[in-house]
């Protein structure tokens, strides 16, 4: 009798709701992220940096372009110049806040474009295979023969610097690795049974790519691209540092570092500040990308 009641109770309980909730993939990812406090903390840092860049005109205490011959190279905490002034007497704090705009733009935009172009080429090469694959991947191999900074410097150096040229150069630098990642992922998925099944039931190439391939390759591509943002910010600021990126008088962290470098004997601490911003931004993107990779369980 007791056995019977237990059985009924279990049965009804199961009809109402499953005893153990089966979580979907994204629920799992969200669950893992929620308890990953380090990643969450760095995600907050990224949000703050982006907010700072977006709302720069409202946050910055002073005009970042306003020069002042009387107050050049003042130390941290001089009057209301909380972080000092640069070699033209401009407020460092305001320039750091505004500088986030250029630096983030130059760091993020190339990765987005490279993801779209490289991802497209890689999926195409991986899915169609054959001669097209050969043609695309061997071309990419040539660009692999250049260390990324060298390639960026070569292209933007030859084109003559400037922010737009720098972004084109960075995009070209990041297309090959993204293409390779998406090609590898696509080739792996292409051989699986469900793709075969879709083809047998008459799916066109475009629809198979859209419904079956993309869902499986976007994860690795996204994770890899998120990791590249950190590299991109470092190289973009490096280009500006060399005078190949953002042009003066616009505020940019790399450019500020390069002009302030002349004054390290006068005002050492102020000179190091723009680099702190680059470092924190790059570190935050790296940590979040790492956390996402673990949460999404992607192996690259």
């Amino acid at each position: 009798m007791t056995d019977f009641t237990t059985a009924t109770r279990l049965l009804t309980a199961e009809e109402e709701a499953p005893a153990t909730k089966v979580r979907g993939y994204w629920q799992n990812v969200g669950y893992r992220l929620r308890y990953d406090y380090v990643t969450l903390a760095f995600a907050v840092v990224i949000v703050l940096i982006i907010a700072m860049a977006v709302f720069a005109p409202w946050i910055a205490p002073k005009d970042p372009y306003k020069t002042s011959m009387a107050f050049r190279l003042r130390p941290v905490g001089f009057r209301d110049f909380y972080l000092g002034t640069d070699e033209l007497g401009r407020d460092i704090l305001s320039r750091l806040i505004h500088g986030g705009r250029m630096s983030l733009l130059m760091g993020v935009v190339p990765v987005v474009f490279a993801t779209l172009i490289g991802g497209f080429l890689g999926v195409l090469a991986g899915f169609i295979g054959g001669k097209l694959n050969m043609a695309i991947m061997r071309t990419m191999d040539v660009f692999y023969a250049f260390p990324s900074i060298l390639l960026a410097v070569a292209i933007s150096g030859a084109m003559g610097g400037g922010m737009a040229n720098g972004m084109v150069a960075l995009t070209l630098v990041f297309i090959p690795p993204l293409c390779r990642i998406s090609e590898t992922a696509t080739t792996q998925v292409r051989g699986l049974d469900f793709v075969e099944a879709a083809r047998a039931s008459g799916g066109s190439t475009a629809s198979i790519i859209a419904t079956h391939i993309l869902g499986n390759v976007l994860g690795p591509i996204f994770i890899y691209a998120s990791g590249l943002v950190s590299v991109s910010i470092l190289i973009a600021s490096g280009l500006s540092f060399l005078g190949l990126g953002v042009e003066p008088p616009h505020p940019d962290w790399g450019l500020m570092l390069s002009t302030l470098r002349q004054s390290i004997y006068v005002n050492p601490i102020v000179c190091a500040l723009p680099g702190v911003m680059i470092f924190v931004t790059s570190l935050a993107f790296n940590m979040v990308s790492d956390g996402l990779r673990q949460a999404m369980d992607v192996r690259l």
Binding site: S237, C271, A272, P274, I278, L283, M287
Partner: peptide, 18 residues
């Protein structure tokens, strides 16, 4: 190791010089 790959080495150079 994450700090190592995130640090802008041109900045680190300046800091070491300082």
């Amino acid at each position: 190791s994450i700090v190592g790959v995130s640090i802008p080495n041109y900045w680190l150079g300046i800091v070491l010089v300082i």
